[in-house]
Amino acid sequence: MSDTLNTTDLTNEQLVEAYRRMLLIRRVEENAGRAYQMQKFSGFCHLYIGQEAVAVATSTAMRDDDYMMTAYREHGQAMSRGVSADSVMAELLGRKTGSTGGRGGSMHIFDKERNFLGGWGIVGGQIPLATGVAWAIKYREEPKVIVVFFGEGSLHQGVFHESLNLASLWDLPIVYLCENNKYAMGTEMSRISAVSDLRKKAVSYDMEAAQIDGQDFFAAYNGIKEAIDRARNESRPTFLDVRTYRFRGHSMSDPATYRTKDELTEEQERDPLGFLYNALVELGAATEEELEGYDKECKKEAKAALKKAEDAPFPDDDSVLDYIYVNP
């Protein structure tokens, strides 16, 4: 049984590590939600809860010096690259110790050390930028790739289509990863897309495309890995329609009344954390006691991150005009 369950090339240790990463993201996001409700910070806050397997499967399939770029629902993606809970939580609270020193905020996490390229707030706007990163990789003949994330709500922006065409035309090493969580704010996919099979979007750009179950860690990893390998080995782009679901509202102010309780319950039964938990136990990769132990650790780490962020100073008042120009 256990031999056929893990269809990936990952070891049990790697799977456990991936699970811990997903768990940490979940606990940090839950804390972020609570901190928001307690008015420890304000603004827009888009939680990643429910989608954790997508980012972690991607990061597991990436090399350290590959690049990731994304939109504003990026706390989890940043942490999947190794950005610490401390640095994310401090950024949410606008602190000097945050990943962008309190200058970026919830939607704009960047970490140059980890090639994490943000954290962008204009729907679809980061897609051509990522295409340019792929251009630079190719220009310099480096063996790297970039994975760019965006929601299915971004698929009808002009720059998405402009970018896919350029990437295919110029053979760029990029993975266009659509996290299809069914809703763009309150708008269900069928109300905005003339096609339901999103792979068709890539057809007119002669680009490989696949639909992937993003709640099944193994399927997600295999599908994304294949696209990354294609980018690295053949310098060809791929479009991925990764099916996932967000368990919370679009942002903290969204009660998500556009979907039924039944739908949510049904989706929560496919919780990516529960999926991997069961698989790890079944594989004998970890015992339930061990997994519960990890959960305690992650909860502690998330709580400590919030506490540290609260204790950290805001950026210096006199820094407001810093970093407008490199050469002022």
Binding site: L117, A130, G132, V133, A136, R140, V159, E162
Partner: peptide
Amino acid sequence: GFTGLGIGAAMM
């Protein structure tokens, strides 16, 4: 599209 591509390349 290609201006955004330029910005991404400049980021690198």
